[in-house]
Write a protein that binds this DNA or RNA. Structure first.
Lengths: 127, 127
DNA sequence: CGCACTGTAGTATTCGCAATAGTACAGTTA
DNA sequence: TAACTGTACTATTGCGAATACTACAGTGCG
């Protein structure tokens, strides 16, 4: 179900968190969709249930999922606040990238070209 | 000379590496400019010389600096290869950001608007 | 009820790796 | 020679991720 990279310096629970976040933000996991149980996911990924639980607890604290004792974990409805946060972060990220490009000697015109190009090559599905 | 964030999960030597990289890529550190000695930098940042040495060794392996035994560490001339690598990475980063924006419901038109906006607000120097 | 599932909480332990501490050796320069 | 430089070790500490294990609480179903 998920892709773990043991070479990645980032901890496993973070990798799991990010993948779930992405799925929720992109609508792959609709609201109230049930997630695999802590034990099941742990079994599938061959790691400890505690690791999954940490990921789930964090995600709940951040508003991406909600937990119901005895029932399971479910994708939360994507709040406007969460969307706005994400947008803000993406904007910041975009600006950082553009700044780095500028300082590397790439003109704004070239940058715009890159942007258009990125859209034209959509379907390659980066990441 | 450098800014260390002990709250950052990233190791110290990585933070140092990145800051030096950025300075070199942006021309703040011209070719053959001498860097502080391992021991001096360690003293300034109040950490162990080994930590600095690790950063320097990595940077040399990546082609950002060169070391001369008995003399010191110096910024390398920014090779075309290094620039190209950096450009490739930025392009990839840009595309990932744009893809995420798309999936968040931001149209290409809006995205372009963001890009222009980012340039207009230059001077705020993000990061 | 009893059973099998779910989440939750806690402790103890292992393990990896960043970072420290310390010593030693080699090359440069005045 | 003296005081710098880089480099190479080994040993140790310390932190946090991940494991292992146990236990308890709520849900759903036959």
């Amino acid at each position: 179900m998920f892709q773990l990279d043991y070479g990645d310096p980032r901890p496993l629970f973070e990798q799991i968190k990010d993948q779930i976040k992405t799925m929720i933000l992109r609508g792959v996991l609709p609201a109230n969709q049930q997630l695999p149980s802590v034990r099941e996911m742990a079994s599938n990924l061959t790691l400890n249930p505690n690791t999954i639980q940490k990921a789930y607890r964090d995600l709940e604290a951040e508003g991406y999922i909600y937990s119901v004792r005895g029932k399971g974990n479910f994708a939360a409805a994507l709040s406007q606040q969460l969307k706005t946060e994400q947008q803000t972060q993406l904007k910041k990220q975009l600006k950082e990238t553009l700044t780095a490009m500028l300082h590397l000697g790439i003109s704004p015109e070239e940058a715009l070209q890159w942007v258009k190009e990125a859209y034209h090559t959509e379907g390659g599905e980066p990441q």
